[in-house]
Design a protein around this nucleic acid. Sequence first.
DNA 1: CTGGACTTTCCTGGTT
DNA 2: GAACCAGGAAAGTCCA
Length: 187
Amino acid sequence: MLSLSHSKRVMLDSVTHSTFLPNTSFCDPLMSWTDLFSNEEYYPAFEHQTGYSFFNDTEETKAAIKDYADSNCLKTSGTKSQDCHSHSRTSLQSSHLWEFVRDLLLSPEENCGILEWEDREQGIFRVVKSEALAKMWGQRKKNDRMTYEKLSRALRYYYKTGILERVDRRLVYKFGKNAHGWQEDKL
DNA sequence: CTGGACTTTCCTGGTT
DNA sequence: GAACCAGGAAAGTCCA
């Protein structure tokens, strides 16, 4: 009982097999997984309102994930230096929403099942935990009033610029012609 | 200081 | 009825 759900297990395991993630979270202690969930400063109001509810899981699961993430991040961070070169300044620090979403999609550690690829090749993805996504985006922008309603409005503006393309399904989006950096073979 | 890009906030109305 | 989706409108934030 109380073990990780299948999907979560898969998600976590995928970290081990990950072939990309060259320079995202590990290079950015500013917003690493552990920062996000162990540092109270980052979750002031959030802590009181919904706690970690966006994981909609048990305390056990939460702890398990954290342990896994901690060990994994720490372990990996030891070899990070060589990965943090050149232009890779963006990562999860990028100021643009679509880049934030993209990078979250490309890093399972930070993702935590919030976003999921629907069709990797076509760049179609689904927002699994809308509330959690909004919270994270809010963290990034230091805005604790962010909601999925507002975040999605911003995403809708991307249809106009070709960053995203419309998909006629709830919580599903698709990267458009003008979005870059998400293709598997171009990473 | 100014203008533009990119949201953020709010809202009305429609859909699942 | 809750959670989304569509966009218009207007205000706010950055940055060149």
